[in-house]
Design a protein around this nucleic acid. Structure first.
Lengths: 113, 113
DNA sequence: GTATTATGCAATCAGTTGGTTGCACTTCAA
DNA sequence: TTGAAGTGCAACCAACTGATTGCATAATAC
């Protein structure tokens, strides 16, 4: 695969992920889940100033991005982090960080010349 | 600072960054800059299907997020990555990755119990 | 069974976003 | 100096987003 199309693939994977992470309420939800453990919609809504419906929508976005998942327990929907996709996301971030390192090195050398 | 407000601060920093990264065109621009070096708006527009004005707007978004900067050279505006902010972003990604690692560990232990 | 709780669905709304086009302005080169 | 090249600005547009409210539905508790 050419470098250009490799970048394109990487970008198609990463952009929706970043987009899902690019909202304060959603990030707070993720932090809430990662430190406080799983929770129902109602419980997750209690921590925030926005309505339950708004939280539902945000969970849907995170779910579409594969970052969380839900399981039905009685009348409750319990949401939690999705380990597999979370690991994917982590690798994705590392890869981009590494490429940025390379870019920083390039800039550094450029300045030194 | 309490854990909750620490998370809030982290989130306020990270969300706009992720939002800026959450678009294919902008990510491609960043990869283009990190692999191909600095370039004028016209040059950067040549690689993409969208108009020059669209690229200008995306560069503005990236600039607001502190990820790129421009310098005037004659009638051209030359854009390049912003090393300092890029390093900040890198650290931010690492911090979140680490927290996710912790969350994954927690999930793992939870499953094993 | 009936009230309560947890959730889903739909309509609505203002604001943002990603994109375009047209025109004006500055700078460079012949 | 005159035309071409590189940008900026402004208006405009369709689509998406984040959020709300009201009502319906399903499960639980008493």
């Amino acid at each position: 695969m050419s470098p250009a199309s490799a970048a394109a693939t990487r970008v198609r994977d990463a952009a929706p992920l970043f987009a899902a992470l690019g909202d304060e309420t959603r990030l707070l939800l993720l932090f809430r889940l990662s430190s406080g453990g799983p929770g129902s919609i109602t419980r997750l809504s209690e921590d925030t100033p926005v309505s339950r419906q708004a939280i539902t929508k945000h969970l849907r976005v995170l779910s579409d991005a594969g970052l969380v998942r839900s399981s039905r327990q009685g009348r409750e929907h319990v949401w939690d982090l999705e380990p597999k996709r979370l690991a994917d996301a982590h690798r994705c971030l590392d890869r981009i960080s590494r490429q940025w390192d390379d870019a920083l090195d390039r800039l550094k050398k450029f300045v030194e010349e």
